[in-house]
């Protein structure tokens, strides 16, 4: 009887250990985290507009008033430049690394003239950009990202249905592309 109790006790200790291992290791193995889903949109280097119905990747516009566009990028060869212009009541942008950790976020009131113009670069690329700043990036915000892979999420607000076309144009015209000088 004592040995059965001992076996259960050992089992419980193992269960606690396994619990910790599962929780710590899960982010690497789920295969349905936000980064993997954004990669599944199959559109590198451009913003992809999400729909109200979840697509094959399971991403959708959760909020009825917010239209969302996502873009996955890689900084392996060149920095990425994000540009969006237009008049919408509100827009906001977040940049995440491949572990879905927030690197940077902003909205239209924290932007220059209310326009989105932003460059994401690795620390080494950023040093080169600062050494000889290109003319085109005079107004751009520079973001340093240690991870080479990541994704950006751009949200725009349509408080009334009549804003819908305007917001769609804003998101459709937004760009997310490698920056070549």
């Amino acid at each position: 009887m004592r040995s059965v109790l001992f076996a259960i006790l050992v089992g419980l200790a193992g269960a606690a250990l396994l619990h910790i291992i599962i929780v710590l290791a899960l982010p690497q193995f789920t295969g349905r985290d936000a980064y993997t889903r954004v990669l599944g949109l199959l559109e590198m280097d451009s913003f992809f507009l999400l729909t109200t119905e979840p697509g094959p990747t399971g991403l959708d516009n959760k909020d009825p008033f917010l239209r969302t566009a996502a873009c996955s990028f890689s900084l392996g060869e060149a920095p990425v430049r994000l540009v969006a212009r237009g008049a919408v009541p509100f827009w906001s942008l977040s940049i995440f690394d491949s572990g879905s950790n927030e690197v940077f976020s902003m909205n239209d009131q924290t932007a220059v003239n209310g326009n989105l113009d932003l460059v994401v670069a690795t620390p080494i690329q950023l040093v080169e950009l600062r050494k000889s700043p290109p003319e085109a990036l005079a107004q751009s915000i520079m973001i340093e990202m240690k991870d080479e892979e990541g994704y950006a999420v751009l949200r725009a607000l349509a408080p009334l249905d009549s804003f819908d076309a305007q917001v769609r144009n804003f998101l459709a015209d937004s760009r997310c592309e490698p920056f070549q000088r």
Partner: peptide, 15 residues
């Protein structure tokens, strides 16, 4: 672990 399982596009701090 929860956000990796849910796979949502979360709001950033300024959003």
């Amino acid at each position: 672990a929860h956000r990796a399982r849910a796979g949502e596009l979360l709001y950033g701090g300024a959003e």
